[in-house]
Design a protein around this nucleic acid. Sequence first.
DNA 1: GGTGCAACTGACCGATCAGTCAATTTTTCC
DNA 2: GGAAAAATTGACTGATCGGTCAGTTGCACC
Lengths: 200, 200
Amino acid sequence: MSETRARLIETATDLFLGKGYGAVGTSQICSTAGVNKGTFYHFFPSKSALLIAAIEKYTKSFEDAFEQIAQSDAAAPEKLAALFEVPAAANRSWRKRNGFSQGCLLGNVIVELGTVDDAVRQASQKALRQWEKPIEPIIAEIAIFEGLHSLDTSKGARCVVSMIQGGLLLAKLNNDPGEISAMAPAALGALHTLSAKSKN
Amino acid sequence: MSETRARLIETATDLFLGKGYGAVGTSQICSTAGVNKGTFYHFFPSKSALLIAAIEKYTKSFEDAFEQIAQSDAAAPEKLAALFEVPAAANRSWRKRNGFSQGCLLGNVIVELGTVDDAVRQASQKALRQWEKPIEPIIAEIAIFEGLHSLDTSKGARCVVSMIQGGLLLAKLNNDPGEISAMAPAALGALHTLSAKSKN
DNA sequence: GGTGCAACTGACCGATCAGTCAATTTTTCC
DNA sequence: GGAAAAATTGACTGATCGGTCAGTTGCACC
């Protein structure tokens, strides 16, 4: 893959994280990446096509980190807590570089374009499902570890993703990555009562 | 307050919920509300000023609903679950009218303008804090009811708000208001382990 | 019935937006 | 070394954006 293309994706991801999709123009992406307008449209047919490429790369980096946690030899509850530290750490390092918390590219895009651009919505949907994939076996481990026999691992994984996204929203609002970490201890108990209720 | 002004706020709220802030132009707001451009700017100095007015009204309606739950005579855990049904019901009725789930005005705005327009960010921050206000006494009741002596009610309320926002995001993504209700049973357990961890 | 003010009109503005394109340079491969 | 392909250039376009403004209407109050 072209180096210029990769730089465009990287630059766009950073800008979209910082200011959102709509607030960043193609001209700004080009000038920041040190590339001309024509080159942009040589590699991508549209601004939203670049966004989708950015989503895919962003998703993969998180999926890999989750996968690594899933395959570590930590105890199941520790793995669960570690999941929250992935976006929390990303948030902290981004904050250090740019001076403020940025939220999540997927969350941003779902909110901003979820009901406007269907290709983007589908890409985001697929992306969040890919997050769930490495999380689900961790939930299954917890179900055994904590004796939650009736826990639906799919619902559990989705609940965890939802709590991570909630934390990311508060992190952006309050400019504090700690909001994400603060949700981590709550997740284990959430799975307990999620299991109890699904018995009905 | 003027009826025209109120109609502008109402129309804008609906459009912003549906397509986001950036994707809705002032011309569309005006034509939908049956008002001329000049009238718009007679009542509001800018598009973002209208947004802030919309945020305030939107926040108040949720705050009132939460307040009513807090002062009902239901058992504390039932109150907690009822909180999630407020946005879930709003989401369902909006979906029935417009054909798709819309998420939350506050969440939308935080994501889209949180790092761009500081006046809007502050208004959203204040708004979510107002949500926490009626939620906190419910958390306090639960702390007594469930014997969670070390539970920080402020942290608990924030956690619940975060879970609601997480559910709203998934509701928008998957076009399913049920995602919000699905988070409700998880909240009680979340408070349990939040309490356990804050002992440290 | 006239005066003053808020409500309202709609054509208009400069800026910016995503996207285009014909021309040029660089790379690739025989 | 030469031709084809890929990468790059940057001025340009039409559309749309938020916002302006000089002027008109309608209503309340004296």
